[in-house]
Design a protein around this nucleic acid. Structure first.
Length: 321
DNA sequence: GTCCAGGCCAGAC
DNA sequence: GTCTGGCCTGGA
């Protein structure tokens, strides 16, 4: 093995560059179903998060050479195979330290994680190898609640469209580096005030519209306190989340995994059911038992393992006719 | 036209 | 507590 590369992060003209990080592949990060506020165009992912709109791209050789020509410090890039990810419009190093570092889970050692999970079994190893560069984002808690209520019995294309329309409907305006208009994710108060039929018509969420409004109201009036939930043990937090309208066991686990860094939260969806049955169980139909098996096999990182299994299974259509 | 998409809810047992 | 049927919507 070569000596491990030292990751460097720097900001030049409001663009942030992450240099020498092998475990950062925008496609695997954004197209694995954990995030809904992105659009891909020629390898660049336009992403809305918090108050930011950024372009995430793993640069190719020509782009790196162009960057150097444009005034990039040449000494930063001294290996031909050194990966470079650009977060266009992401801001200064202060923005990185206060937001992006957390959002992209930069303090987790993914090389060590891949090694640890790969040792568990061959199928998990195949999934890990397939999705090298996948990271579990740390997204906004309330945004995850609303997004995953919309996700139930739905597909990713339509979920993305509905979340975008909802943000447009009642989120605050923000702008990207080229002054294009985008929208922040709405507050609980903003969604709580919406009319059910307006919401359904404008966003296409259909029968989920009353769930969204009820849940936003429960959160806005502190009937369910999100700050409290984040202090609770996993089981209690999961139970509390399912009090929200439209939140069942699977959605609650997605919220905890992607919005509250709960590595053991193990969402059991159709693909995970297929994978767990094909490789570990056979014909188990009870989701609670499937989840218990996941926790038994993958321990306190079951949720992380789940995300690689899910992504691999969905792409390869494991268990489908 | 029918089927399906990262499930949840209500009602029945 | 566990199981079953119904469900907005739009693209294949």
């Amino acid at each position: 093995m070569n000596k491990p590369m030292q990751r460097k992060v720097l900001s030049i003209n409001k663009d942030i560059y992450i240099i020498g990080e092998e475990d950062f592949d925008p496609k695997h990060i954004f197209e694995n179903g954990q995030a809904f506020r992105w659009e891909e165009n020629q390898g660049e992912y336009t992403v809305v998060a918090n108050k930011y709109v950024i372009g995430v791209k793993k640069l190719n050789l020509e782009e790196i050479q162009k960057a150097i020509k444009d005034g990039w410090p040449l000494d930063l890039w001294n290996h031909e195979d050194l990966p470079v990810v650009r977060l266009r419009g992401a801001g200064t190093m202060e923005d990185y330290d206060t937001f992006w570092r957390h959002y992209f889970d930069m303090d987790r050692d993914y090389q060590a994680l891949r090694k640890e999970l790969s040792d568990i079994d061959d199928y998990l190893k195949a999934s890990m190898d397939f999705a090298t560069g996948l990271r579990i984002l740390k997204q906004d808690f309330f945004e995850m609640i609303i997004s995953f209520i919309i996700s139930a019995n739905n597909n990713i294309t339509r979920i993305k469209k509905s979340v975008a329309k909802l943000s447009e409907m009642c989120g605050e305006k923000i702008y990207d580096a080229d002054s294009n208009v985008y929208y922040k994710f709405p507050t609980p108060e903003a969604i709580a005030e919406l009319d059910t039929e307006d919401l359904a018509r404008f966003t296409g969420v259909g029968y989920r519209a009353p769930y969204l409004i009820k849940t936003a109201q429960m959160i806005a009036n502190k009937e369910v306190d999100l700050d409290d939930i984040r202090q609770m043990h996993y089981e209690q937090a999961h139970r509390e989340l399912t009090l929200l309208s439209g939140v069942g066991p699977k959605v609650a686990d997605c919220i905890l995994l992607f919005g509250d860094s709960r590595d053991m939260a193990f969402p059991v969806d159709t693909w995970v059911i297929k994978v767990m049955n094909k490789y570990y169980l056979g014909e188990e139909k009870n989701n609670k038992k499937i989840k218990a098996e996941g926790l038994k096999r993958f321990g306190d990182k079951a949720g992380l393992a789940q995300q690689y299994l899910f992504y691999h299974a969905r792409i390869h259509k494991v268990g489908s006719r």
